[in-house]
Amino acid sequence: MTDQQAEARSYLSEEMIAEFKAAFDMFDADGGGDISVKELGTVMRMLGQTPTKEELDAIIEEVDEDGSGTIDFEEFLVMMVRQ
């Protein structure tokens, strides 16, 4: 866990972390443990947004600390705390 990830967790109660985990699992449609650009786009479109591929890439790049091209749960928490 990076310093950013530990800091993000410090702002959240266990209840909030559990709620974010449920949301993360909804995004992680294939159950792979991370959110891909495609999965992020699908959920955002379900919520009425129309992000471009470039916008989706930028969202993932902003929090993808390990350079995997996807968002894992710890990175997702950082993203949610920043919102």
Rank of each mutant, 00 (worst) to 15 (best):
I60P: 02
E55K: 10
M26H: 00
E74T: 04
T50M: 02
L56V: 12
D3L: 13
A6L: 09
V63M: 13
R9V: 06
A6Q: 09
D28N: 05
E74A: 04
K53P: 14
T50E: 05
I17A: 06
R45Y: 03
G41L: 06
M26S: 14
Q4K: 03
A22M: 04
E62Y: 10
Q4V: 12
P51M: 07
E19W: 02
D66K: 15
D3I: 13
D28H: 06
V43W: 00
F20A: 13
T2E: 11
V63E: 03
L40T: 04
D72L: 10
R82C: 05
T52F: 01
F76I: 01
D64P: 05
L77M: 09
I17Y: 07
A18T: 14
F24D: 00
E19I: 02
L77T: 10
R45D: 13
Q83G: 15
D34Q: 08
Y11G: 10
E15S: 05
I17M: 08
G32T: 14
S36I: 01
E62H: 13
D3A: 10
E54D: 14
E65A: 15
Q49K: 12
G31Q: 02
V81I: 03
S36T: 13
M46I: 07
D25V: 06
Q49M: 10
A8L: 13
D30Q: 10
D3G: 10
G48H: 14
G67I: 03
T70S: 11
Y11I: 03
D30A: 07
I59C: 04
A58N: 10
F73S: 00
E39K: 05
E19S: 08
F20I: 07
T52W: 01
V78K: 15
E39Y: 13
S68N: 05
S36K: 08
P51G: 05
Q83S: 13
Q49N: 05
G69D: 08
D66G: 07
S13T: 12
D3N: 15
M26C: 11
Y11E: 07
F24R: 00
G48M: 03
E14F: 11
Q49H: 15
D66R: 08
D34S: 13
I60L: 08
D25H: 09
V78Y: 08
D34F: 05
R9I: 06
G67R: 08
D66C: 11
G33S: 03
T2R: 14
K38L: 12
D66S: 08
T42P: 14
T2D: 15
Y11W: 07
E74Q: 12
T70D: 06
S10P: 05
E54W: 06
A6K: 15
D25F: 04
A22P: 01
F20V: 08
S10D: 14
I59V: 09
E74I: 00
T52R: 04
E61T: 11
Q5C: 11
M80G: 01
P51E: 02
M79G: 09
Q4N: 14
V37L: 13
D30H: 13
T70Y: 06
I59P: 01
I71L: 11
M46N: 07
S68G: 15
K53Y: 07
M46T: 09
K38F: 00
F20H: 01
F27I: 11
I59L: 10
Q83M: 10
L12K: 04
E14C: 03
Q4E: 14
V63F: 15
E15W: 04
V63H: 14
V43P: 00
S13M: 01
K53W: 03
V78G: 13
V43R: 00
S36R: 07
F27V: 08
K21S: 02
A8P: 12
E14A: 09
Q4A: 05
G32H: 13
G31H: 15
Q83L: 07
D25Q: 06
A22C: 04
Q49F: 14
G31N: 14
A6R: 11
S36G: 10
S10C: 03
F27C: 13
Q49W: 06
Q5R: 14
G67E: 12
R82M: 09
F24M: 00
I60R: 03
D72P: 10
R45C: 07
M46C: 12
M80D: 00
A22Y: 02
Q5Y: 07
E75N: 15
M44R: 00
E19P: 00
F73I: 01
Y11K: 10
R9D: 15
E54R: 10
I35L: 07
A23C: 05
M16E: 14
